[in-house]
Design a protein around this nucleic acid. Structure first.
Length: 423
RNA sequence: GGAGAGGUGCUCGAGUGGCUGAAGAGGUACGCCUGGAAAGCGUAUAAACGUGAAAAUGUUUCGAGGGUUCGAAUCCCUCUCUCUCCGCCA
């Protein structure tokens, strides 16, 4: 959520910036300011009314004590009116606040000045290409055939047990998963991230805190009996650690990492692009989350992006780094870098990581604050990124490393898998 | 799941209808004292929202929400969380 005072003072700039994100409903900004004016006015009236009745209540107390019952009763009658007035004012105020929040939730985050306009992923800026795209023989197989050939990931079995998008990892496939998880967690620890193991189900408040609710309600699995949601990413529980928290500035930067399974309904996405491991309902991911001072957040974003790239380099995967254009940027992000790995057999780029700075957008919803040098509380900046999500990494590893002898495991991973080839 | 007890500020803890945003203690910060430190002494120490140029000041918040009352941390209702006992159980 954007801050109302910020919108108020920078309305033109906000409007211009939001156009880069293809946000159409610019008039909403005026509506927000008007609603806020109304809210303030009601607040003032309510405060005054309450202050008055408070004074009278005290007077009545005094009168009762000194035995002036009659006078007290006269005063009592007077507070009746005030009570009714304050009741209606506080109803109006609650209504105005609700409306304001509703409006604010509709406004996306403001993109960073470096973000260019654009409509889709085709307009994203390619910042660099790293690694050589391997030349594959004509008979190179896509991963969904390799997994069957080596019997390491069973999609059919998953269909039987649960449904599409819930594969069963078997033998070296299962082992490879575990190896990647441990590799990513170890790397993150070495890079200064604290490892946490969060719950996989979260309550409604947490869903709102990180913005999955209400917008993405239908994308999360919901356990109705207990009104809990399966997390779509560890970002949700980790970031919510800091919901309603005032952190100490000396603790900055606060770096956390967590491995979790992620659950996504992916309602409405079917077709060729989602075959095999490209899109799953349940998958594994190691996430990194950073909280820092507003002045430091962009340096931190770069640091995180570099860190994720270092993982790809160690895994010997050719990748490219993209800066998302306004149209492809998520609702909450101010700036996002995507890393895409080249999948040789599918002949396409697969997004394996998204690293974003949300500035204070998330923190405002979360009420995640810190005390600055002057002792003032202000919103912190939050960032997060995948480091990394497994399925597409596995897909690329399988496809790019297929050899007549089997799938060659990259050197960095061998200590974790305990084998050099899947065959 | 059944029975009971409880949730007060950074922490502990008092408080059963008005003088309590909240005693007292601890912690922390600053100052005094000291050659330095400890002890001692003094002062400060929540957040949100309003008004104000600022100093300042109003309102709200004692798990959450609702109710009773002129007035609620204190009484009533609902929910939630924690603890104890029983049951069940990875």
């Amino acid at each position: 959520m954007l801050l109302v005072p910020y919108i108020r003072e920078n309305k033109e700039a906000v409007a211009t910036a939001l156009k880069i994100k293809n946000f159409k409903d610019i008039d909403i900004l005026d509506l927000i300011v008007n609603t806020d004016d109304n809210r303030r006015e009601l607040q003032k009236k309510l405060d005054d009314t309450l202050a008055e009745s408070k004074i009278i209540a005290k007077e009545i107390g005094g009168l009762f004590k000194s035995g002036k019952i009659e006078e007290a009763n006269i005063k009592k009658a007077k507070t009746g009116e005030l009570k009714e007035l304050s009741k209606s004012l506080s109803d109006d105020l609650a209504e105005a606040k609700k409306k304001l929040t509703y409006l604010l939730l509709k406004v996306p985050n403001i993109p960073h000045p470096s973000v260019i306009a654009g409509n889709s992923d085709e307009d994203n800026e390619i910042i660099k290409n790293i690694g050589e795209i391997p030349e594959m023989p004509d008979n190179a197989l896509p991963h969904w055939e390799l997994t069957e050939k080596y019997d390491i990931i069973d999609f059919e079995l998953g269909n039987k047990i649960t449904g599409a998008g819930f594969p069963v990892y078997k033998g070296k496939g299962a082992r490879l998963q575990r190896a990647l998880i441990n590799f990513f967690l170890d790397e993150a620890s070495n890079a200064g991230f604290r490892e946490v193991q969060p719950p996989l189900l979260v309550n409604e408040d947490s869903g709102y805190g990180t913005g999955q609710l209400p917008d993405k309600d239908g994308q999360m699995y919901h356990v109705g009996e207990d009104n809990l949601y399966l997390i779509p990413t560890a970002e949700v529980p980790i970031t919510n650690i800091y919901r309603d928290v005032i952190v100490k500035a000396v603790d900055f930067p606060i770096r956390n990492t967590a491995y979790s399974q992620c659950f996504r309904r992916e309602a409405g996405s079917y077709g060729k692009d989602v075959r095999g491991l490209n899109r799953l309902h349940q998958f594994d991911k190691v996430e990194i989350v950073v909280i820092d001072h507003p002045e430091k957040s962009y340096a931190r974003l770069e640091e995180m992006t570099n860190y994720v790239q270092s993982l790809l380099v160690k895994l010997e995967l050719p990748y490219r780094l993209l800066r998302l254009c306004g149209g492809d940027l998520s609702f909450t992000a101010a700036l996002t870098f995507d890393m895409e790995v080249y999948s040789a057999a599918q002949k396409r780029w697969l997004e394996v990581s998204s690293v974003s700075n949300f500035e204070s957008f998330q923190a405002n919803r979360l009420k995640l604050r810190f005390k600055d040098e002057n002792g003032k509380t202000q919103l912190a900046h939050t960032l997060n990124g995948s480091a990394l999500a497994l399925p597409r990494i596995v897909a690329a590893l399988l496809e790019n490393n297929q050899t007549p002898e089997g799938i060659k495991i990259p050197k960095a991973l061998v200590p974790y898998t305990g084998f050099e080839y899947i065959n």
